[in-house]
Design a protein around this nucleic acid. Sequence first.
DNA 1: CTGGTAGCCTGACACAGATCAATAAACTTA
DNA 2: TAAGTTTATTGATCTGTGTCAGGCTACCAG
Lengths: 253, 253
Amino acid sequence: MAITHTQPRFSSKLTSQCQNCSLSALCLPIALADEDINRLDQIIERKKPLKKGEFLFRQGDNFDSLYAVRSGTLKTYNITSLGEEQITGFYCPSELLGLSGIDSSSYPVSAKALETTTVCEIPFSHLEELSTQIPSLKHQIFKIMSRKISDDQQMMVLLGKKNADEKVASFLLNLSNRFKRRGYSASSFRLSMSRGEIGNYLGLAVETVSRVITRFQKNELIHVDGKEIEIVNFEEMQKLVGVAHDCDKIAHF
Amino acid sequence: MAITHTQPRFSSKLTSQCQNCSLSALCLPIALADEDINRLDQIIERKKPLKKGEFLFRQGDNFDSLYAVRSGTLKTYNITSLGEEQITGFYCPSELLGLSGIDSSSYPVSAKALETTTVCEIPFSHLEELSTQIPSLKHQIFKIMSRKISDDQQMMVLLGKKNADEKVASFLLNLSNRFKRRGYSASSFRLSMSRGEIGNYLGLAVETVSRVITRFQKNELIHVDGKEIEIVNFEEMQKLVGVAHDCDKIAHF
DNA sequence: CTGGTAGCCTGACACAGATCAATAAACTTA
DNA sequence: TAAGTTTATTGATCTGTGTCAGGCTACCAG
């Protein structure tokens, strides 16, 4: 929830980092009183960076904390009964991980860094306590969890109904939106995950992801150079995804 | 959260229905003090039954309330940009609907009754208020939302990685577990949804669902008579799904 | 520099499941 | 009861994507 963009500093003497954090508008969309932000700030621990491939937590670990991404990217994944990995999400700066652990008191997924990554740790018991004292904070947590539920359901629609082109286009536009929200370019960004990880996440084979991306480039929808992506033709991409504009089609039976 | 199994009664004079409700153990897994149950009870409205095909709420409606299913079944679904419906969940007695509406203040899905259905309405603003006064209630809401997030992620694994047989087997065993938890037979139950709705939910064509079910019957995994299902060979069904037993295979890299 | 590894791309082919079509069964309404 | 409608089943065929196999490139360690 509270994130700073400054260089990692580990002194607990630094308070009010959330206020200075360029991402706090995203973490705390409903402005808390200054005093409340301070209180929130005090329960948050800034952790030392994870290197690529390191775990933030593992499936089965005791649940203690939520984590807000400060910089870098992580993936969460399940291990299926066959021992394969199924990626359930990618997490960019300002996004919150670990919500699925609250219920069972252990994390039902593993979280691994895709690159050098820093996070803020938010001990859940403290957060919960604080949320008793600050109703707007509690409301904010409800909203964040609710949002996660809607987003996951959109993902279910994608996995259940879309073809390969639509999946990849949705994925790229989704990333684009997330970068945009953070103040970065919506049209030009770097993929921190491999083609294999994209395919895993979207329910596609690596080869299919590769072919679709190549074809998109051939059709001048995007420009690709390895992990660098530039979205050239937003309009066509959105048509592929099926944007909400043509919602007049929607009937309520 | 609070549900009664008695015949529908609409007098607001009836208090403490939650205590008498055979489902309350499911709604209130962490026992609230009697006094707290009463307070919860007082904010809950028992609504008149929905007939098959009627809406509980529609995509875009203002979000006001959560709903707990008392009897019957509902489905929730999205309308995709092409105007098709994508079912995102089925809801049986004791289960809670509407969580995805908290974030955006309008429901992002529609909820429709699959048969005659009664629900308890829980005005969210009241619930939130009450949760400020009763920390264990707040905790319970966090847990329920967290559980929903884990469940949806399991569904993403199913949609992304499983084949038709595994999907249908998972679906049937999932229903079986839910009936069992409610004290009904785990092996013998009635599907309240059509084959088309099952297919839609699982990302399969109707014909595929039909064929898989027929084949399961041929192989004596289940016995089917229209909407009546009997699971005959649990062990084989669980093998199909890939139960968690063979988790020694799982490596943590 | 060399060899090794991992990621990515591309082509050929196979197959699970979609689609199309026709019939049968179940339910609805009059 | 019959007529009409929806739902389920079954068979025949088609197709999008997975699978397999090969090669290319980039990067790292020695």
